[in-house]
């Protein structure tokens, strides 16, 4: 469960202080499917980054699964990201030097798993995401949809409790985007929390809960 209380994130632009997040209070239960929407600059990506422990709030407290994580050390936060959170980005963020299989393997390497078990899990994941015949290809040899599939496979291989997707279809054409969303929704079906940042209303409407942000504040919180 994600519990945010009074979360504030301030960016300083010269003399000006901009509230990217302005005292946000938010609860997201495990297994929810949430869309965070709003115009650009409304703070939706910042909110996602704070939830994913990539960004530190300037004020407020964040409890994840009943444990306050805002004042954990850098290494402890990294461990939580590794074990509980999977990120999916608009621009995929695959390592260009590594093959699809190696990209998927990265989180396992970071967690210090033995090579034999890593191989097993990577192979299972490749099969589950229908990427087995692309295992040895580098990102530059893959299509956009395949790249995002690799990225989602990487985000899920550690079996996180939450997948955080920031405009996951932003760089894909419509048809492929639908496939990627279907893939993410499949993961949600298996019980994973799914939080998607998007400005695409159609995509947002698929979620079971829509958060509308503006100027760092939650304007509406709609459950369908």
């Amino acid at each position: 469960m994600i519990e945010l209380t009074g979360i504030t994130r301030i960016f300083h632009m010269g003399e000006q202080s901009i509230y990217a997040l302005d005292h946000i209070d938010l609860e997201i239960q495990n297994g929810e499917y949430v869309a965070i929407m709003g115009p650009s600059g409304s703070g939706k990506s910042t909110l996602l980054n704070v939830i994913g422990l990539l960004d530190k709030p300037d004020d407020g407290s964040y409890r994840l699964d009943g444990k306050t994580v805002t004042d954990l050390s850098e290494a402890e936060q990294a461990q939580i990201r590794r074990e509980k959170i999977g990120f999916v980005f608009q621009s995929f963020h695959l390592v260009p030097r590594l093959t699809a299989a190696e990209n998927i393997e990265l989180p396992l390497i970071l967690s210090g798993l033995a090579a034999a078990e890593r191989k097993q899990r990577v192979n299972d994941t490749l099969r589950a995401f229908d990427l087995s015949d692309r295992a040895a290809h580098r990102p530059s040899e893959l299509s956009g949809g395949q790249r995002q599939r690799v990225a989602i496979a990487r985000a899920t291989i550690m079996q996180p409790t939450a997948i955080l997707a920031d405009e996951p279809t932003g760089n894909l054409d419509h048809q492929i985007g639908v496939e990627v969303i279907a893939l993410l929704e499949n993961l949600h079906q298996t019980g994973t929390t799914l939080i998607v940042v998007t400005h695409d209303r159609e995509l947002g409407d698929r979620a079971h809960r829509q958060l509308m942000l503006r100027d760092g504040k939650i304007m509406t919180d709609k459950k369908t």
Binding site: G52, L54, E74, A75, A78, Q79, I80, R81, R82, E83, I85, G86, F87, F89, H93, V95, L106, P107, L110, S111, R154, A155, M158
Partner: peptide, 16 residues
């Protein structure tokens, strides 16, 4: 830089 950001996102501590 973006690769380092990714490593951090998927849970690499600064020490790694």
């Amino acid at each position: 830089t973006s690769e380092i950001g990714l490593l951090k996102a998927i849970g690499a501590p600064a020490a790694d």
